[in-house]
Amino acid sequence: MKKQNPLQLTYNSTPLWFIAVLTLFSATLTIAETLEEKGYAIAARSDRSDTGFGDSSVKLSMVLRNAAGQETTRSLRINTLEKANEDVGDKSLVVFDSPRDIDGTALLSHAQILEPDNQWLYLPALKRIKRISSANKSGPFVGSEFAFEDFTSLELNKFSYKFLKEDTLDGLQVDVVERYPRYKNSGYTKQIAWIDQEIHQIRKVEFYDRRDSLLKTLILSDYQKYGENIWRAQKLQMTNHLTGKSTDLLYSDYEFQTGLNERDFIKSALNRIR
């Protein structure tokens, strides 16, 4: 007996209008499902738009400003080793140059996605390397308005996402995406990110504290392109709405593929910090 094509049978026995309704229905379903998916896709596109840099080194000047407008500046260097696998975190080394009393102090981080990061602090006076807890996500980073997590939790998969809307920001077409920390000890319930549709970079982030009220706003500007598609903001301005204090991060002298490798990010490499 000749076997009947099941598809043929279905096709024949199903009225066309039913298929049309089904298609429509599934289309709506897809849209409903993708607020999260779309949010993730936008975030992923943004994240991936500047991947493939391999390694980078940059100088950073951090300007801390109190409510009265008084300023203090600290300078540091950051080396980063990119991990191509999104399920593995990048490695970074932060070395302080000023204030002078902490000159040579360094922080080595091996970021993980959902597990706590591994972090070591180098104290030059004793030449001591000390493994430290990375549970302190929400505390201020060196007295600034940036929390530890604002620096260390930039991995795509440290958050879940939800697409909110399309909007315009300073004349740019942007996607507005909410992101929710998936790692423990975050000081935020959510963040709202404005990502432009042209070069897919984050332009603005609002941080909502544990009571879900707006705590801080971050403005990222002066994007510059390095090589094929590596975009980096040269200026990050974080304003704390509760205290009126703000911190500017001014990046300069970005270098990519400088020849840094795994060996520059091992614990004992801290002993070679200058």
Binding site: P116, N118, R131, I132, S133, A135, N136
Partner: peptide
Amino acid sequence: LQYTREAWL
């Protein structure tokens, strides 16, 4: 030896 977990060392 050091065992580091959450806020404990």
